[in-house]
């Protein structure tokens, strides 16, 4: 191999290695980019939008229209709680705020911090589901054996397309101590 070839080999290898490093970085850049793109394009607001009470009056209340909202709760593996919506479903007027409660009870003998992750079906209705107050905004802590009523205050936007007559709001409750997850799975 001549010296010139060796030199151009080294240069190309450096370029390609730099490219590999850049692509590795790109993988990690996807993390913030992903949320950014989702927000800009308006997709993946998985749990509905957060609004303030005073922003509500702008569109008024649509008394003519009734939409059924169904409530649901699921437990992720490793969380030993009882969680149930106190209201299974509610017929609501878009534009009017409503309060509903979820009852939760910690069945374990230790303190558990959980996080509720919302999901809305059909997902196209997600952007019209506005929450004023929600237990899912914060982590929820329950002492051993403690029960609590978790509050949700929401309003459906009057701009919800008419084809949606039923909207389901489902929460998955997860233990924030994720190490338990692997034990839960292997204990099956």
């Amino acid at each position: 191999m001549t010296g010139a070839t060796k030199k151009s080999n080294r240069r190309l290898v450096l370029w390609l290695t730099g490219f590999v490093a850049a692509m590795f970085g790109f993988g990690f850049a996807m993390v913030p980019l992903y949320s950014l793109v989702c927000n800009v394009v308006g997709i993946n607001k998985a749990g509905g939008s957060r609004v303030l009470e005073k922003q509500l009056t702008r569109l008024g209340v649509d008394e003519e229209r009734t939409v059924r909202v169904e409530f649901d709760a699921t437990l992720n593996a490793a969380l030993d709680w009882d969680v149930k919506p106190r209201t299974a479903h509610l017929d609501v007027h878009p534009g009017k705020p409503y309060d509903v409660y979820y009852s939760a009870r910690n069945n374990t003998d230790h303190e558990v911090v959980a996080q509720a992750i919302p999901g809305i079906t059909p997902w196209q209705a997600t952007e019209y589901f506005n929450k004023i107050a929600c237990f899912c905004f914060n982590q929820q802590k329950l002492a051993p054996g403690e029960s609590a009523d978790l509050k949700l205050r929401f309003v459906l936007s009057p701009e919800l397309p008419p084809k949606y007559s039923t909207v389901t709001l489902s929460y998955t409750f997860m233990d924030t101590n994720r190490n338990k997850l692997k034990h839960a799975a292997s204990a099956r």
């Binding site: 590999v20 692509m23 590795f24 790109f26 993988g27 990690f28 996807m30 993390v31 994720r178």
Partner: peptide, 17 residues
């Protein structure tokens, strides 16, 4: 060269999680 580092990044994040 373009895709392997991205997979490596993805599974590294998995490991961190």
């Amino acid at each position: 060269i373009m895709i392997m580092p991205v997979l490596a990044g993805g599974v590294t994040m998995l490991l961190f999680d």
